[in-house]
Protein backbone atom coordinates (compact mmCIF):
# COMPACT_ATOMS: atom_id res chain seq x y z
CA UNK A 1 0.00 0.00 0.00
CA UNK A 2 1.47 3.31 -0.91
CA UNK A 3 1.80 5.97 1.77
CA UNK A 4 -0.35 8.35 -0.19
CA UNK A 5 -3.21 5.87 -0.36
CA UNK A 6 -3.20 4.71 3.23
CA UNK A 7 -5.72 7.24 4.60
CA UNK A 8 -8.30 5.81 2.22
CA UNK A 9 -7.47 2.22 2.81
CA UNK A 10 -10.62 1.27 4.70
CA UNK A 11 -12.87 3.24 2.43
CA UNK A 12 -11.25 1.75 -0.68
CA UNK A 13 -11.57 -1.71 0.78
CA UNK A 14 -15.28 -1.29 1.40
CA UNK A 15 -15.84 0.20 -2.01
CA UNK A 16 -13.93 -2.63 -3.62
CA UNK A 17 -16.14 -5.14 -1.85
CA UNK A 18 -19.22 -3.53 -3.31
CA UNK A 19 -17.96 -3.13 -6.83
CA UNK A 20 -16.81 -6.71 -7.01
CA UNK A 21 -20.29 -8.13 -6.61
CA UNK A 22 -21.61 -7.49 -10.11
CA UNK A 23 -18.38 -8.71 -11.61
CA UNK A 24 -18.77 -12.05 -9.94
CA UNK A 25 -22.43 -12.32 -10.74
CA UNK A 26 -22.14 -11.38 -14.39
CA UNK A 27 -18.97 -13.18 -15.29
CA UNK A 28 -19.50 -16.14 -13.03
CA UNK A 29 -15.78 -15.98 -12.37
CA UNK A 30 -14.33 -17.89 -9.48
CA UNK A 31 -12.42 -15.67 -7.14
CA UNK A 32 -8.93 -16.40 -5.97
CA UNK A 33 -8.47 -17.27 -2.33
CA UNK A 34 -6.90 -13.91 -1.31
CA UNK A 35 -10.31 -12.39 -1.85
CA UNK A 36 -12.09 -14.50 0.71
CA UNK A 37 -11.93 -11.70 3.27
CA UNK A 38 -13.60 -9.38 0.81
CA UNK A 39 -16.21 -11.98 -0.06
CA UNK A 40 -17.23 -12.31 3.55
CA UNK A 41 -17.34 -8.55 3.85
CA UNK A 42 -19.52 -8.44 0.76
CA UNK A 43 -21.93 -10.91 2.34
CA UNK A 44 -22.27 -8.52 5.22
CA UNK A 45 -23.77 -6.03 2.78
CA UNK A 46 -25.86 -8.58 0.94
CA UNK A 47 -29.16 -7.04 1.96
CA UNK A 48 -28.26 -3.90 0.02
CA UNK A 49 -28.76 -3.81 -3.76
CA UNK A 50 -25.50 -4.30 -5.66
CA UNK A 51 -24.11 -1.09 -7.05
CA UNK A 52 -22.58 -1.29 -10.52
CA UNK A 53 -19.06 0.07 -10.86
CA UNK A 54 -20.31 3.17 -12.64
CA UNK A 55 -22.28 4.28 -9.58
CA UNK A 56 -19.15 5.51 -7.87
CA UNK A 57 -19.79 8.88 -6.24
CA UNK A 58 -16.93 11.36 -6.73
CA UNK A 59 -15.35 12.96 -3.69
CA UNK A 60 -13.52 15.79 -5.42
CA UNK A 61 -15.16 16.54 -8.74
CA UNK A 62 -18.42 18.47 -9.03
CA UNK A 63 -21.31 17.05 -11.05
CA UNK A 64 -20.37 19.26 -14.02
CA UNK A 65 -16.70 18.27 -13.81
CA UNK A 66 -17.67 14.62 -13.47
CA UNK A 67 -19.70 14.83 -16.67
CA UNK A 68 -16.80 16.41 -18.53
CA UNK A 69 -14.35 13.84 -17.19
CA UNK A 70 -16.46 10.91 -18.38
CA UNK A 71 -16.89 12.40 -21.82
CA UNK A 72 -13.21 13.30 -22.21
CA UNK A 73 -11.65 10.02 -21.08
CA UNK A 74 -14.12 8.15 -23.30
CA UNK A 75 -12.49 9.87 -26.29
CA UNK A 76 -8.89 9.50 -25.05
CA UNK A 77 -9.23 5.71 -24.71
CA UNK A 78 -12.44 4.86 -26.56
CA UNK A 79 -14.55 1.76 -26.35
CA UNK A 80 -14.18 0.32 -29.84
CA UNK A 81 -13.72 -2.86 -31.84
CA UNK A 82 -10.50 -3.57 -29.89
CA UNK A 83 -12.47 -3.78 -26.67
CA UNK A 84 -13.26 -1.83 -23.49
CA UNK A 85 -11.94 1.70 -23.03
CA UNK A 86 -11.41 4.19 -20.23
CA UNK A 87 -15.03 4.09 -19.04
CA UNK A 88 -15.12 0.32 -18.54
CA UNK A 89 -11.72 0.58 -16.86
CA UNK A 90 -13.14 3.01 -14.28
CA UNK A 91 -10.77 5.82 -15.19
CA UNK A 92 -13.03 8.59 -13.77
CA UNK A 93 -13.18 6.79 -10.43
CA UNK A 94 -9.41 6.31 -10.51
CA UNK A 95 -8.82 10.02 -11.14
CA UNK A 96 -11.24 11.08 -8.41
CA UNK A 97 -9.56 8.74 -5.93
CA UNK A 98 -6.16 10.13 -6.90
CA UNK A 99 -7.46 13.58 -5.92
CA UNK A 100 -7.34 12.34 -2.32
CA UNK A 101 -3.61 11.58 -2.46
CA UNK A 102 -0.58 13.76 -1.80
CA UNK A 103 0.12 13.77 -5.55
CA UNK A 104 -3.03 15.82 -6.16
CA UNK A 105 -1.95 18.56 -3.77
CA UNK A 106 1.43 18.92 -5.44
CA UNK A 107 3.06 17.62 -2.25
CA UNK A 108 5.41 15.38 -4.22
CA UNK A 109 6.85 18.39 -6.05
CA UNK A 110 9.08 21.30 -5.13
CA UNK A 111 6.50 24.10 -4.91
CA UNK A 112 8.41 27.06 -3.48
CA UNK A 113 8.45 30.27 -5.49
CA UNK A 114 9.30 32.36 -7.30
CA UNK A 115 7.48 30.75 -10.23
CA UNK A 116 8.23 31.41 -13.87
CA UNK A 117 5.28 30.25 -15.95
CA UNK A 118 7.01 31.31 -19.17
CA UNK A 119 10.01 29.01 -18.81
CA UNK A 120 11.13 26.99 -21.82
CA UNK A 121 9.70 23.45 -21.95
CA UNK A 122 13.18 21.99 -21.29
CA UNK A 123 12.77 23.12 -17.67
CA UNK A 124 9.71 20.96 -17.08
CA UNK A 125 6.75 21.92 -14.95
CA UNK A 126 7.09 25.46 -13.57
CA UNK A 127 3.52 26.42 -12.59
CA UNK A 128 2.33 26.94 -9.05
CA UNK A 129 -0.84 24.90 -9.70
CA UNK A 130 -1.39 21.49 -8.11
CA UNK A 131 -3.05 18.68 -10.12
CA UNK A 132 -6.33 19.38 -8.30
CA UNK A 133 -6.19 23.02 -9.32
CA UNK A 134 -5.28 22.11 -12.89
CA UNK A 135 -8.50 20.09 -13.10
CA UNK A 136 -10.68 22.72 -11.43
CA UNK A 137 -9.46 25.50 -13.70
CA UNK A 138 -8.90 23.37 -16.78
CA UNK A 139 -12.28 21.64 -16.95
CA UNK A 140 -14.11 24.94 -16.50
CA UNK A 141 -11.98 26.54 -19.20
CA UNK A 142 -12.45 23.62 -21.59
CA UNK A 143 -16.22 23.60 -21.16
CA UNK A 144 -16.27 27.37 -21.51
CA UNK A 145 -14.27 27.19 -24.74
CA UNK A 146 -16.61 24.54 -26.16
CA UNK A 147 -19.58 26.68 -25.25
CA UNK A 148 -18.10 29.71 -26.96
CA UNK A 149 -17.20 27.72 -30.08
CA UNK A 150 -20.21 25.44 -30.37
CA UNK A 151 -22.86 26.70 -27.96
CA UNK A 152 -22.64 23.44 -26.03
CA UNK A 153 -20.58 21.96 -23.22
CA UNK A 154 -17.92 19.37 -24.12
CA UNK A 155 -20.03 16.40 -23.08
CA UNK A 156 -22.90 17.56 -25.32
CA UNK A 157 -20.78 17.58 -28.49
CA UNK A 158 -20.64 14.69 -30.93
CA UNK A 159 -17.55 12.47 -30.85
CA UNK A 160 -15.83 14.04 -33.87
CA UNK A 161 -16.23 17.56 -32.46
CA UNK A 162 -14.98 16.37 -29.08
CA UNK A 163 -11.89 14.87 -30.71
CA UNK A 164 -11.27 18.10 -32.58
CA UNK A 165 -11.52 20.07 -29.34
CA UNK A 166 -9.12 17.72 -27.53
CA UNK A 167 -6.62 18.12 -30.39
CA UNK A 168 -6.85 21.87 -29.97
CA UNK A 169 -6.09 21.55 -26.25
CA UNK A 170 -3.28 19.08 -26.92
CA UNK A 171 -1.56 21.32 -29.45
CA UNK A 172 -1.78 24.36 -27.20
CA UNK A 173 -3.45 26.34 -29.99
CA UNK A 174 -6.24 27.24 -27.60
CA UNK A 175 -5.54 29.90 -24.99
CA UNK A 176 -7.21 29.29 -21.63
CA UNK A 177 -7.22 32.28 -19.31
CA UNK A 178 -5.70 30.78 -16.16
CA UNK A 179 -3.46 27.97 -17.34
CA UNK A 180 -2.04 26.61 -20.59
CA UNK A 181 -4.55 24.29 -22.28
CA UNK A 182 -1.69 21.93 -23.00
CA UNK A 183 -0.85 21.59 -19.29
CA UNK A 184 -4.43 20.60 -18.59
CA UNK A 185 -4.55 18.16 -21.50
CA UNK A 186 -1.21 16.56 -20.62
CA UNK A 187 -2.33 15.90 -17.05
CA UNK A 188 -5.68 14.51 -18.16
CA UNK A 189 -4.07 12.16 -20.67
CA UNK A 190 -1.40 11.02 -18.20
CA UNK A 191 -3.99 10.30 -15.49
CA UNK A 192 -6.22 8.53 -18.03
CA UNK A 193 -3.42 6.18 -19.04
CA UNK A 194 -2.61 5.61 -15.36
CA UNK A 195 -6.24 4.71 -14.69
CA UNK A 196 -6.34 2.37 -17.67
CA UNK A 197 -3.13 0.48 -16.82
CA UNK A 198 -2.67 0.70 -13.00
CA UNK A 199 -3.25 -2.14 -10.63
CA UNK A 200 -7.01 -2.38 -10.00
CA UNK A 201 -6.52 -1.64 -6.29
CA UNK A 202 -6.14 2.02 -7.27
CA UNK A 203 -9.66 2.08 -8.69
CA UNK A 204 -8.86 1.89 -12.40
CA UNK A 205 -8.15 -0.93 -14.86
CA UNK A 206 -11.27 -2.74 -13.67
CA UNK A 207 -11.34 -6.40 -14.64
CA UNK A 208 -7.80 -5.67 -15.87
CA UNK A 209 -9.19 -4.53 -19.22
CA UNK A 210 -6.09 -2.41 -19.90
CA UNK A 211 -3.72 -5.28 -19.23
CA UNK A 212 -5.77 -7.77 -21.28
CA UNK A 213 -5.72 -5.41 -24.25
CA UNK A 214 -1.93 -5.51 -24.49
CA UNK A 215 -1.25 -8.92 -22.88
CA UNK A 216 0.50 -7.53 -19.79
CA UNK A 217 0.45 -10.18 -17.04
CA UNK A 218 0.05 -7.75 -14.12
CA UNK A 219 1.40 -8.99 -10.82
CA UNK A 220 2.53 -12.43 -12.02
CA UNK A 221 6.13 -11.23 -11.83
CA UNK A 222 7.84 -14.59 -12.37
CA UNK A 223 9.08 -15.35 -15.86
CA UNK A 224 12.01 -17.63 -15.19
CA UNK A 225 10.70 -20.18 -17.69
CA UNK A 226 9.73 -17.62 -20.34
CA UNK A 227 12.90 -15.58 -20.77
CA UNK A 228 14.18 -17.36 -23.85
CA UNK A 229 10.86 -18.16 -25.59
CA UNK A 230 9.83 -16.28 -28.71
CA UNK A 231 6.11 -16.94 -28.30
CA UNK A 232 2.96 -15.36 -26.96
CA UNK A 233 2.73 -15.42 -23.15
CA UNK A 234 -0.43 -17.46 -22.62
CA UNK A 235 -1.54 -16.68 -19.06
CA UNK A 236 -4.05 -13.92 -18.30
CA UNK A 237 -3.15 -11.16 -15.87
CA UNK A 238 -3.58 -11.24 -12.09
CA UNK A 239 -3.84 -8.25 -9.78
CA UNK A 240 -2.09 -7.50 -6.51
CA UNK A 241 -5.19 -8.48 -4.57
CA UNK A 242 -5.43 -11.78 -6.39
CA UNK A 243 -8.15 -11.16 -8.96
CA UNK A 244 -7.72 -13.17 -12.17
CA UNK A 245 -8.79 -11.95 -15.57
Amino acid sequence: MSNEDSPNERRDFLRKSLTLIPVVTLAGASLASPLSAQESSAKHDANKPAAPASHYEPSYFTAEEWTFLHAAVARLIPTDERGPGAIEAGVPEYIDRQMGTSYANGSLWYMQGPFNANAAPEFGYQLKLSPKEVYRLGIAAADNWCHQQHGKLFAQLDAATQDAALKQFESGKVAFEQLPAKTFFTQLLQNTKEGFFCDPMHGGNKNMVGWKLINFPGARADFMDWVERDERYPFPPVSIRGERA
Partner: peptide, 18 residues
Protein backbone atom coordinates in the same frame (compact mmCIF):
# COMPACT_ATOMS: atom_id res chain seq x y z
CA UNK B 1 5.77 -4.07 -4.72
CA UNK B 2 4.42 -5.05 -8.17
CA UNK B 3 2.75 -1.66 -8.40
CA UNK B 4 3.89 0.63 -11.20
CA UNK B 5 1.72 3.55 -10.13
CA UNK B 6 3.05 3.76 -6.59
CA UNK B 7 6.72 3.00 -7.28
CA UNK B 8 7.70 4.39 -10.67
CA UNK B 9 4.93 6.86 -11.45
CA UNK B 10 4.52 8.40 -7.97
CA UNK B 11 8.24 8.01 -7.25
CA UNK B 12 8.01 6.08 -3.98
CA UNK B 13 11.70 5.27 -3.60
CA UNK B 14 13.16 8.45 -5.02
CA UNK B 15 14.42 11.64 -3.45
CA UNK B 16 11.68 13.74 -1.82
CA UNK B 17 12.18 16.89 -3.86
CA UNK B 18 9.36 18.71 -2.08
Amino acid sequence: VIDELTYNIRRKLFQDIS
